[in-house]
Design a protein around this nucleic acid. Structure first.
Length: 881
RNA sequence: GGGCGCGUAGCUCAGUGGAAGAGCACCCGCCUUACAAGCGGGGGGUCGUUGGUUCGAACCCAACCGUGCCCACCA
């Protein structure tokens, strides 16, 4: 892709040279190795500012590292690098993987490819296989996006996992257990018959599917009652029929019994508030073992729970249907009922919400099962209050509503999973039915008949401990004392509920009511250039390693950061990462220009009064930019930071400032050259510092070359200097830019080649305050001075460019009158429209009376300017004839 | 079914009461000595629709249309 860099050449000033070609791969690798060698990633202990901590999400969400992680890392690392430059002690919590269901999924998929399942391997071999996969695949992106230390410490994780349970998990489990916040109960849970595991509410995805609604008559004669169901097969497990207590139609039946078809069992008719009399027939079959609502009804009425399916979803009762899969059983049972004359009505297709396993899309089966739960009531209340009372801020604030909606309506949390990879539940069961929870540093009971619960904990159980377990909790470590609560959590809004809410609950609980972080910064999902979700089936998935390889980590980071505003999704495309790479290249070349022209940081920045307007202008712009970037960083508006710096670097510095320094630096006034060299060095220095958090590698390379210093990582973050703000210089430069642009426009319209110098006479510069800048204007607009001696200057065009300046040009031939007339006519129309708008406003007494005076004054000024323009353009048009 | 967003240039998005913006894409001209991964110039939008509030609306309010996400035990 890129050529090998050319060997360095010495520059005129003797400064070290950059290769002519920017080669991101080489630069980034070299810089990374240097940072590691210099040990730049340990926390600095010398700061008196509060520590700045970032919580790094465990990369377990999808089971592999992807562009979403690259986004997390970019934002986190950018925030951290700026804080470090500001003198904060920063810590980035390590990104260890942990007990992820997804981790297991990846390996299960591999096994499926070999025609195996985990049950074929056995628990031990399976776990070993997961380790193998992790060792081969883990941590790559984390390093290459940021190279911020080898933050993935697999050996440490291996240690904690080999213990079976990390101390943190054990500690909090035991504490919750003893506080009666963890309990084991038989409940209806979401069960995936394919994965053979319980699912929490958030692992179930609902969709409207086509099913059937079948009405079945239970009983005969006067005592008959018709129920409707979408799941006919569960009727085998019915233990009652329920109606609403106030439903007149059925009042006489409450307390009686009906015969359950096909089985001959007699079941009671009960009255329960849950039933909606308006839906269907107003009577509902009750299957407590296979429906959450029915379970509740069953509890209230003391009904038995009759389980009719095994964990694979296969019918386990009643001869004719025994051994049928649940989806085979449904039509079979409907057919049998129809043959019996019991089907009263059928509606097919019937659209209704059905739950699916998040991972394999299998239809979820509600199943009565013995599981472990966290009693979330008090924990969730505390998690909500911490945001309500302002201790924790959510950015963007709009998402707090969603947060409350979640924590204020949280069901108890099913934490047991029937997987083999993860932290095992630390509970042993004894031969006499004993239940013992084993805490850290406690001996598990041994002896015949004692067994450990085979289930593992939900992946989010250990993730919820992240902000403090990574700091050494439950030990009272120095890190914990210093860095908890952490400063900011950066993650996508998609796991606000999965992860963030749980960290809040456990953080507040384990750390005596102290929140796990002060700010929750939520960004969006990475999407493609059409705003589409990335998915393998669309084929629009981006591999960040591929981009890093082809465009560089800086370009990849800039592309992501440029889209990363709080709460907003982040669209990316190859075109844009190319643009980001081009920007890196632009900085490279700008710095080469500086080095080649003696840009320096030696000595004090010259005082304002010694500087040219151009130098004062660029310094003034710089101060504004520093202020804006600071504000945007504090508001976590990374996209705006990128935008501000991109435009300052490219438009102000490269397109104007560097060009404007050329006449000075190529001139003869050595003192003036030195002053501009110093300003040039200052501007490049500050620009590179400001960009460093977002593009660490290229700025490090350029900054160290420019300054001769060791690293920009520890350079101070720039502070705005109000004394360098110069409104007059900015106004003067605006005039200069206008004149130059107008001449360029004329030249382009007239088809004058850029390389062709044109003789011109400039008038009226004094009025625009541009007297001193004639040379600059001529340089940028490529206008030559008339040769007084030759005397053959013949103005073929006279250009009135506004701000009172006129330019007479000798284009050595007839100008294109038609083109010129077209241009002027267009300008005239624009000026006329503007003038008309202003006049209309000013002619409206309602406006002049009610609008604030500054607004009215501004409109008056605009009218004057428009009328002046109009006069100028009109007279020019007339002169064209 | 409930809740929260969003609809601005071909694409992705800023702008949230006082002159319609950016990046990319597009058109024209250029190898001008930091940079063709570039330089200069240019075209392009009745700001979803309809009402309302206001001297003034892309921006505030209402309704509608379109679209996205989250939540949900109506059998």
């Amino acid at each position: 892709m890129t050529d090998t860099p050319r060997t360095s050449e010495a520059t005129p000033s003797g400064a070290p040279a950059l290769s002519a070609q920017y080669a991101p791969g080489d630069v980034e690798q070299r810089r990374y190795e240097q940072w590691v060698a210099d040990g730049l990633f340990q926390a600095d202990a010398k700061s008196d500012r509060p520590p700045f901590t970032i919580v790094l999400p465990p990369p377990n969400v999808t089971g592999s590292l992807h562009i979403g992680h690259a986004l997390d890392h970019t934002v986190q690392d950018s925030l951290a690098r700026r804080r470090r430059m500001q003198g904060y002690e920063t810590l980035w919590l390590p990104g260890m993987d942990h007990a992820g269901i997804a981790t297991q999924n990846v390996v299960e998929r591999q096994l499926a490819g070999e025609g195996l399942s985990r049950h074929d391997l056995g628990r031990e071999a399976f776990v070993e296989r997961v380790w193998q996969w992790k060792a081969e695949s883990g941590g790559k992106i984390l390093g290459q996006m940021t190279r911020l230390g080898d933050s993935v410490d697999w050996s440490r994780e291996r240690f904690t996992m080999d213990e079976g349970l990390s101390r943190a998990v054990l500690t909090i489990f035991k504490r919750l257990f003893e506080d009666d916040l963890i309990y084991r109960a038989e409940r209806i849970i979401n069960w995936c018959p394919r994965c053979l595991t319980a699912l929490s509410d958030i692992e179930v995805e609902h969709s409207d599917d086509e099913g059937e609604l079948v009405s079945i008559r239970y009983g005969d004669g006067d005592g008959a009652i018709v129920v409707a169901t979408t799941r006919a097969e569960t009727m085998l497990g019915d233990t009652a029929v329920a109606v609403h207590p106030d439903d007149e139609r059925y009042r006489h039946l409450v307390g009686t019994e009906v015969e359950l078809p096909l089985t001959g069992r007699r079941i009671p008719i009960v009255a329960d508030e849950h039933v909606d009399p308006a839906f269907g027939t107003g009577a509902v079959k009750v299957t407590p073992a296979h429906d959450p609502n029915d379970f509740e009804i069953g509890q209230r009425h003391g009904l038995p729970n009759l389980t009719i399916m095994d964990d694979h979803g296969v019918i386990t009762v009643h001869g004719p249907f025994l051994g049928l899969d649940r989806f085979e059983a449904r039509p079979a049972i409907v057919a049998a009922l129809r043959a019996d004359g019991r089907i009263v009505a059928e509606k097919r297709p019937y659209l209704h919400a059905v739950g699916h396993c998040q991972r394999c899309s299998t239809t979820v089966e509600p199943r009565l099962s013995l599981q472990w739960f966290v009693r979330t009531g008090p924990l969730a209340k505390a998690a909500g209050d911490a945001v309500r009372d302002g201790r924790v801020r959510v950015e963007p604030q709009e998402l707090t509503k969603r947060y409350f909606g979640w924590v204020d309506n949280m069901h108890d949390w099913c934490i047991s999973r029937q997987l083999w990879w993860g932290h095992r539940i630390p509970v042993w069961y004894g031969p006499e039915g004993e239940v013992v929870c084993v805490g850290p540093d406690e001996q598990a009971p041994t002896g015949p008949g004692w067994t450990q619960d085979p289930d593992v904990l939900d992946t989010w159980f250990s993730s919820a401990l992240w902000p403090f377990s990574t700091l050494g909790w439950p030990d009272e470590t120095a890190d914990l004392a210093k860095f908890y609560p952490t400063s900011v959590l950066v993650t996508g809004y998609d796991i606000l509920f999965f992860w963030v809410a749980r960290m809040m609950m456990f953080g507040l609980y384990a750390m005596d009511g102290r929140q796990p972080f002060d700010v929750i910064m939520l960004h969006g999902m990475v999407r493609d250039q059409y705003g589409k979700k990335m998915s393998k089936s669309f084929g629009n998935v981006v591999d960040p390693l591929d981009w890093i390889e082809r465009f560089g980590a800086d370009a990849t980071r800039f592309t992501l950061a440029r889209g990363a505003n709080p709460g907003a999704d982040v669209p990316v495309s190859e075109d844009w990462v190319q643009g980001a790479r081009n920007f890196c290249n632009k900085l490279w070349n700008a710095t080469r220009y500086g080095l080649g022209n003696g840009a320096t940081l030696d000595g004090e920045l010259p005082p304002q009064e010694q500087l040219t307007t151009v130098d004062r202008w660029v310094l003034s712009r710089l101060q504004h930019v520093i202020g804006e970037v600071d504000e945007q960083f504090e508001a976590f508006e990374l996209a705006k930071v990128c935008d501000t710096l991109y435009h300052f670097a490219w438009d102000d510095v490269c397109d104007w400032y560097l060009e404007l320094t050329k006449p000075v630096l190529n001139g003869d006034d050595e003192a003036a050259k030195d002053r501009t060299r110093r300003v040039l060095g200052h501007v490049l220095d500050r620009l590179l510092r400001l960009l460093h958090p977002i593009m660490p590698f290229v700025t490090e390379e350029l900054w160290t070359t420019l300054t001769g210093e060791r690293t920009v990582v520890r350079a101070a973050w720039p502070a705005a200097d109000a004394a360098r703000i110069d409104d007059a210089a900015e106004a003067e430069l605006a005039n200069l830019q206008r004149v130059v642009t107008e001449v360029r426009r004329f030249r382009a319209d007239q088809g004058v080649k850029p390389s062709q110098r044109v003789v011109a006479r400039l008038d009226g510069l004094a009025g625009a305050g541009l007297t001193a800048h004639e040379g600059l204007i001529r340089s940028l607009a490529r206008l030559d001075v008339e040769e007084a001696a030759s005397g053959d200057f013949a103005a073929t065009a006279k250009l009135a460019v506004g701000v009172g300046v006129t330019v007479e040009l000798d284009t050595r031939g007839a100008i294109d009158v038609a083109a010129e007339r077209a241009r002027l006519t267009k300008d005239q129309a624009a000026a006329e429209k503007e003038a008309a708008q202003c006049r209309a406003k000013l002619g409206n007494p309602a406006f002049t009376d009610k609008a604030p005076e500054p607004v009215v004054a501004k409109i008056r000024q605009r009218l004057e300017a428009a009328e002046a323009d109009l006069a100028r353009i009109t007279s020019q048009l007339e002169a064209l004839s």
